[in-house]
Simulated scan of single mutants.
Amino acid sequence: MGRQDTPNSGAGRNGSAKTAGQRTAPGKSAPRAGRKPSPAVYRRRRLFAGVALLLVLCLIAGGVATLTSLLGGAQQASSAQDSAQGASTEGGEAAQPGATPSASPSATPSASPTCDQKLVTVKATTNKTSYAADEKPVLSLTVTNGGKLPCKVNIGTSQMDFLVTSGSDRVFSSGDCQADSTDLVKTIAPGKSETANFPWPRNRSVQGCEKVAEGAVGGGYYVFIAKLGAKVSPPTVFQLS
Rank of each mutant, 00 (worst) to 15 (best):
R46P: 01
S16K: 12
R44F: 03
N14K: 08
K28E: 09
T19W: 12
L53Q: 01
R44H: 08
G27Q: 05
K36L: 13
P39E: 06
A11V: 00
N8Q: 08
L53A: 12
G50A: 11
Q4D: 05
D5Y: 14
L53H: 00
N8S: 05
A17F: 13
K18D: 04
P37A: 12
A25R: 12
G50F: 02
D5M: 13
P26T: 04
N8F: 08
A30D: 03
G50M: 07
G50H: 05
T6D: 08
A49C: 04
F48M: 05
V51D: 00
A25M: 11
G10D: 02
S29G: 10
Q4A: 01
K28I: 04
A20D: 09
P7H: 10
R43F: 07
R43A: 13
Y42I: 11
R35S: 11
R35L: 07
R13E: 06
G34I: 07
Q4E: 02
Q4C: 02
P37C: 08
A40S: 12
A33T: 15
L54Y: 10
A30G: 02
G34F: 01
Y42Q: 11
A49H: 03
G12F: 14
K28S: 03
R35M: 02
L53E: 04
Q4N: 04
G21L: 10
L53P: 01
T24N: 12
L54M: 13
A20W: 02
A30R: 04
D5L: 15
A20T: 07
S38T: 15
L47A: 13
N8C: 00
A40R: 09
L53N: 03
A11H: 12
S29L: 11
P31I: 06
Q4G: 01
G21M: 07
L54R: 08
P31E: 09
A30L: 03
Y42D: 11
A30E: 09
A17P: 07
T19N: 13
S29F: 10
L53V: 08
K28F: 07
A11D: 01
A52W: 05
A25L: 14
T19P: 00
G34A: 10
